[in-house]
Amino acid sequence: MRLLTRSILGSVFAVSIALCGSVHAADVKAVAILTPEQGTDFGWNQQGVTALKEAAAKEGVKALVAENLGYGDVRPTLREMAEDGASLIIAHASGYNTAAPEIAEETKVPVAVTDKPEAMKPGLVADYTMSGHQGAYLAGRLAAKMTRTGTVGIVVSGEPPGWNSQSAAFAQGAKAEKPGITIRYAVIGPAAYSDAAGGKRVTEAVIAAGADVIFGQGNGSSFGMLEAVETTKAADGGKVWFIDVIGDKSSLDKGNLLSSVLWNLTPVFTAMIDDLKANTFGTHGYAIKLADNSVGLLKTSHIPDKVWAELQALREEVISGKIKVEPQFDASAVHALVTAVAAK
């Protein structure tokens, strides 16, 4: 009897919490996204804006976009979006994950943040810490197949969890393909997302250390990495390859873009809207993966057909679980792994 009473009270409490903090199905009329840079960076920001628009169109709701907000205080913009009728605000930068939950509490408009799963609150705050580690693993296999010098590099403009996870998976993939491979790892700065000059400088140093394939993770800074591989020769005098993340820079390629770990956030944002409608928002995280093509590896003409076929076979093994690629979000785990791999 006591157990039954507890169950009933618990259920009532849970439903009350969900109803108090959430938006009703009929209330979802507009979804908003805030991005730190323009949605034209062929990367994180562009993918965010594009995915939100696609998800909104799919769900029949209005999309509100605020781009190029920088990395400062976005509280005023969050409030404006709430006042403009947004039923969900996606704060598309790890630097926004303190302000957004605060404004969610203030306005009672649900927000989605990234790189802060501990901020999740049913009906009010969801986290979408993304990691394309499965794709990065394949990128590592590709890099190891293509390197001539036996050294590959990882250059990152910061160490957010999602990128740590991809760096680790890249190293694992490279090591699995070629156990004796050397991996050089360098961070441009604590949050050097737009530091293109820093991206070029650090990439040049990594190339000078012997790398002929660079796995680069950055927003604006990735263009500096691209410039570096285009203007610097590898130790053997040959071409340096570049593997990008999130977006497709093929249209900008001057002959060095080997591939990219492509992300598609449309399924994630669509799921968020569905969760809002089902009153399950903020109760679980979201993921991107090879199986549903929300993560993929870009095929360019620089990848030999034989290598691509081998990568497709590996992709199937990752999807089936035969090859296990676990995300490692912690920077120290990445350092240890890269150091261990480099030491071999």
């Binding site: 293109a196 820093g198 400088r201 604006g220 263009f223 410039e227």
Partner: peptide, 16 residues
């Protein structure tokens, strides 16, 4: 100098 020689391009907020 930063844009032309340091980076070889311009991106928003690049002075960082």
């Amino acid at each position: 100098f930063m844009a032309e020689i340091g980076a070889g391009l311009f991106v928003p907020f690049m002075t960082n």
